[in-house]
Amino acid sequence: MLHPFVSSLRGRIAFMAGWIVVMAIHSAILVFLFNISITDSLVDSLFTNSVWALFAFGLWYWVRFSDIETGKTFTIAINHAGAAALSVAIQVYVTFSFLRWYAETGSDYQIFIEGSTMGRVIAGIATYLFLSLVFYLTVYIQNFREKLVREGELKSLVKDAELNWLKLQVNPHFLFNSLNSVSSLTITAPEKAQEMIIRLSELLRYSLRQSPSSMVPLEKEVECCIGYLEIEKVRFGSRLSYRFEVTPECLSVNVPGMIIQPLFENAIKHGVAQTPDETEIVAKVVKYTGGLEITVSNTIPSDPFAAAGAGVGLDNIRRRLKLIYGAESLLSISQTDSVFSVTISIPFNQ
């Protein structure tokens, strides 16, 4: 850790200001309690405290060296006792020598100096204790601040990692089934195979381009979903039909990337794939005062054999929305006899 009173301008100013206050108190005591002249008081104060200020620079490193969190209490006490004795002795000796030389022989001030040894030693010890205390406090505050910063960084790292994990990767089964369709199309309709490969590439590129927290205009998301649905239409044919109801004002609103496609995937997995009959998927986007509301619903097969149930994929979207917006229940599910709907709310994030 750098010397806080040297490394920054604020530190240097605080250090000087601190000493000016100390000098003022020192002079005031001499003037008012011991009737020393203002000039002599100032000289005494200036010299004594300048010497201490020089010591204080070194004391910082001594405090850093005697870390109370890692060192043994006894060792630290010895360290400080030794340092205090030495610095007080040197300080008192140097000050005495100078002030004796400075004081006029026979003046009141000279008499005062000769009798002030004990007072100066006590004041020296007090100064040493005070300085150490201030320095330990500074170290403590610096450590605390660093810890806060590190914790904050760690939290955002964990959040990023979790988002990364939740980020919708294109489902591998979807990919393999689509590739199987492509494989078939290369024989039956090569130009359609090419079209499908391009669509698949666009979808993959779009999904890879999204970072966990990236925001894209709704228009891009809708385009991505249409691409996805067109690929699925090749697989499912007339079993799948879809419709978008989006008011134009919503298209420019930013939403998390790849947040809508999983809703369609869910509708396909639990709706379209469960019945040989036609399933219609409808996506509605409406703007309300606080944000966008996106609803994807699919008709439920009236088939007694169809396996019902919502997907785990929805939990991922719920968690992702919570991580991005920090709010609960941004995803809700509703079901009637014939329609299954999932609604997500995207708050405006100003």
Binding site: N180, S181, S184, I187, V234, A273
Partner: peptide, 29 residues
């Protein structure tokens, strides 16, 4: 259940002799 996959299987199987596709089913039932 997927038509393109059925087409592909038909195509592959058509190249084998003495294979007779007697039914194609789009669902389990």
């Amino acid at each position: 259940d997927e038509e393109p996959a059925r087409q592909l299987l038909r195509k592959y199987l058509s190249e084998h002799s003495n294979i007779d596709i007697i039914a194609e089913c789009p669902d389990g039932y």
